[in-house]
Write a protein that binds this DNA or RNA. Sequence first.
DNA 1: TCGAATTATGCATTCGAATGCATTGACGAG
DNA 2: CTCGTCAATGCATTCGAATGCATAATTCGA
Lengths: 333, 333
Amino acid sequence: MYDVARLAGVSQPTVSRVLSQSEDVSQISKETRRRVLAAVEQLGYRPNAVARSLRTQKTRTIALLLADLSNGFYHPIARAVQKIAREHDYEVLISSSDHLHENEIHFCEIVLSRGIDGVLMAPQRLTMEELSHYVSQTNIPFVALGEHVDHPNIDIVFVDDEKATYETTRWLIEERGHRRIGYFGVPPFLPPGPGRTRGFLRAMEEAGLSVNPNHMQEGDFTLESGKQAARALLATGGNLPTALMVINDLMAIGAILTLQEAGLRVPDDIAVVGFDDIPEATIVRPALTTIAQDAYDIGQKMATALFERIENPDIGERRVYESTYKLIPRQSA
Amino acid sequence: MYDVARLAGVSQPTVSRVLSQSEDVSQISKETRRRVLAAVEQLGYRPNAVARSLRTQKTRTIALLLADLSNGFYHPIARAVQKIAREHDYEVLISSSDHLHENEIHFCEIVLSRGIDGVLMAPQRLTMEELSHYVSQTNIPFVALGEHVDHPNIDIVFVDDEKATYETTRWLIEERGHRRIGYFGVPPFLPPGPGRTRGFLRAMEEAGLSVNPNHMQEGDFTLESGKQAARALLATGGNLPTALMVINDLMAIGAILTLQEAGLRVPDDIAVVGFDDIPEATIVRPALTTIAQDAYDIGQKMATALFERIENPDIGERRVYESTYKLIPRQSA
DNA sequence: TCGAATTATGCATTCGAATGCATTGACGAG
DNA sequence: CTCGTCAATGCATTCGAATGCATAATTCGA
């Protein structure tokens, strides 16, 4: 910057003002501005973002923690966040926890030490104490995905998982006439497991239907775990359910593949319903009936909420945004 | 750091030494070290990465530019890079160009202004002049994916695309007896389009087979564009090829879906071969026969090459690493 | 017992840019 | 002709940590 200043015949602070203050705020003469910009151009000067960050205490970077980069559900979120961030002239540091506690902790440490300006996260294994611990050490805004995050300083965006699975289970019962319905979920410590499971069980109970414990299997959101769950179901040897609610599309697809391999017809022998509506849902045959989430909308809501707080730090209390879902009947149920 | 120093009864530089120099290099007494670490603990002090970066001129961050975050091919690359980066205690700034020139430029600007320590990229639209322009402005190492990147200061990792499609096309001809083979590619300015197309054409020519221009269609690597290409193929009305080489799996799957919708049987009426071996290849029915790339290996090679240069800046001339491919015969051909 | 060689630590400066405050010059009013 | 005002710019400092150099403390040998 000194070199630019010398070439333009002004002082370093003047160059700084030309480069970092908006035209109307600064009191730089037109002529000076022109000379400075010409010098910048001539030298190919580029401001050093690190130095700028140190002085302003802003990095113009937000961090985004996803649960699984390979799960297509998260891609529109990342895309929406990137887009909005770019509109605000911010960069996004993307990280994938792969559902691991250790990675979520690492993410938080990075956020605190790197001077990130705001955080978007889909936390799964972090306890509320841990979250509080980190949030309390900083003034930057946090926005999380999921109803389970309940902290006074964290805005959330959520989808009513319980209602979604409840309604869909009822749909399976009332519209499709199923009475033996199974459920593939995840262990209760993995959001949004509990909510979805609750919705399923409530619908079954209200309909006066019992659930065979053998028909409830657990996985970890991956395709492979959906296959395993289906294998476990088949291995029980007992009579099979006529329909299966699965906690997400990837597992649902895994289940379909394995069931078909075992000679079962979907949906004739077993109907399968997923959750998310990822691109793969239209690739499997039969195409997957699923509860669609609007991931792009979720990403937009999260990013918008975050930047509102970044631009106006004293917005006040926790805000809650709900994003919609919608049952998409295809061929698998 | 001053607070820590005061609490520990030492000077700020001493705290700095305790925190940033390895135990054996530094000449800090055991007792002082203990007191300092205790003070750090007590105050919950966390070094400011921005200040550290300004002083050391290192950000401990590398940048990774992918062509399309939604394309599963890139996920293992990202995963491998993250893993190796973490082993070196670096963070990864991931970005997706979505095949757009504008985004590739933006990425380079960020790299230069943010003081990134190294770059991994899968450039597609950047011209060699532009790349040179950016590379020449910095001393940090660049590693690129793809044979088409030919710059003395950029190491590359590549897969022999031409050989792969050549061999696979021969396989279609010799092992499977196809003589009318079509090809779905991408416009020639999109790597690795040209190499793969060349391999296909060479195999056809050597076999003395001509290619019906109607059987050559172009897309942009996406599922949707594969569907469009298939629609265009069908719309030509003429006789159809009995086999189709497709430049990547996503387009191949799109093609299969559309062909099936039109009442054609795969592979009986038209065999389809893809390239990449993404997870979706095992989801479609028939399962996709494809040329597998070892994306995790590619990511590892790229990251390893990069860190070698980061740790030893004067390694010298451009290095070239080849990663393998392998035809995976499944059911679609 | 004293100086040389270590070892342990502190002081002052530096990284690059942003900013509070001071200064300069031009202009107009009295 | 003088002084106040305001626009334009410069000076000095600051952000937080790392580091070259100087120095104090300790050890050791002769």
